[in-house]
């Protein structure tokens, strides 16, 4: 199955235009999902169970979109209004009883609304489960949404995610993404910076071990004047894992004074891990500032040496340095318990 097409094609033999999942089989007979737990300020956010019928501009390919359209077993429409601080957590727990999750989430940020929304995918440690989901965020004028997205599924599970955000004037949508789990974890992330002064921030940490395949395709189209996009990814890969990061910032004509930044740092912890990155800047407007930087390599030797003179073993020192790189992103997670879970997973995986 071919998924996650990049908006700009490159030569086929670079193998980055899309991702081909060979052994994919679409689960049939999706049963009712009983593993959802909603907590937090549930009284302050209206949650309606209804089909959202959202048609994403990019998404994760026709087969998966069709499945969400026809076979979703969780449909949520979150309506965030009012300015008072509120926080809500949606926890999806995949297990023997709830093996397949096909979820469709719509987050509606009305004018001036403010909220933190944690969306968390966890699973039993063992078991081949399946997740195909889509999240659509509409951020109306001056709304402010803070979204924490956690993929902590086990390493046998298939994980396919499509995200789409549309931002109106003066709105801010901030994402913190922890992308650790899944045998194949494929994420299509698209933002439309439609409104003037809109602001999208994406902070992602990823971690690949064993035979994991991570395919991240982040696309941001910049239309609004003075709008701002900041993509910041930190990751580490080891064993035979593979990571593809495709990041596109597309400055459309007339997005004057817009700014875009895209940064990725990938630490490679074994000589069999593979990192491909395709950081694309497209630009048809003169009055913008666009930057990207990407780097990869092993852990800095000077840092390692410094820590080892303080008595840490090589492994401990590596772990500490990678954790240090992740920390500024982990700190965005408001809930201490979740932070602890993330840190614990880093410990385990490294």
């Amino acid at each position: 199955m071919i998924l996650n097409e990049t908006p700009i094609r490159t030569a086929k033999n670079y193998e980055i235009n899309n991702i081909n999942i060979d052994d994919f089989s679409l689960p049939k007979n999706i049963k009712k999902f009983g593993g959802l737990n909603i907590s937090g300020d549930v009284d302050k956010i209206s949650i309606i169970e209804e089909k959202n019928k959202a048609n994403l501009k990019y998404g994760n390919g026709e087969i998966l979109s069709k499945q969400i359209e026809n076979d979703s077993n969780v449909n949520l429409h979150l309506k965030v209004d009012s300015q008072d601080k509120k926080e809500i957590t949606l926890e999806f727990n995949l297990s023997e009883e709830n093996q397949n999750l096909v979820d469709d989430i719509l987050i509606d940020g009305t004018e001036n609304a403010t909220a933190t929304i944690v969306i968390k995918y966890i699973s039993d440690r063992k078991g081949k489960f399946y997740h195909n989901g889509q999240i659509r965020v509409v951020s109306q004028n001056s709304s402010n949404l803070n979204i924490i997205f956690l993929n902590l599924l086990n390493k046998e599970t298939e994980n396919y995610v499509s995200i789409e955000n549309v931002l109106d004037e003066n709105s801010t949508v901030k994402y913190t993404i922890v992308d650790f789990g899944g045998k194949n974890s494929v994420t299509n992330y698209y933002t439309n910076l439609k409104g003037e002064n809109s602001n999208n921030e994406i902070n992602t940490i990823y971690l690949g071990t064993d035979n994991q395949l991570l395919d991240l395709n982040y696309i941001v189209e910049v239309y609004g004047k003075k709008s701002n996009i900041n993509m910041n990814l930190k990751g580490a890969i080891k064993d035979k894992s593979k990571k593809h990061f495709k990041g596109t910032i597309d400055f459309k004509k007339d997005c004057k004074k817009a700014k875009g930044d895209e940064n990725e740092y990938c630490t490679i912890l074994s000589d069999t891990a593979k990192s491909i990155s395709l950081p694309v800047l497209l630009c048809t407007e003169e009055d913008i500032e666009g930057n990207h930087g990407t780097a990869s390599g092993k852990v800095d030797e000077k840092q390692l040496f410094y820590l080892m003179t303080r008595g840490l073993s090589l492994k401990e020192a590596q772990k500490l340095i990678v954790r240090g790189q992740f920390n500024e992103i982990i700190e965005n997670i408001p809930d201490e318990n979740i932070r602890d879970i993330v840190v614990e997973q880093i410990e385990q995986k490294l």
Binding site: I8, T10, Y14, I16, C266, I268, L269, S270, D271, A273, K274, S275, I276, S277, L278, P279, V280, L281, L282, C283, H292, T294, S296, G297, K298
Partner: peptide
Amino acid sequence: DTIPVNDVRTD
């Protein structure tokens, strides 16, 4: 436009 492919296969 800037379209670079970076493919790193060792540590």
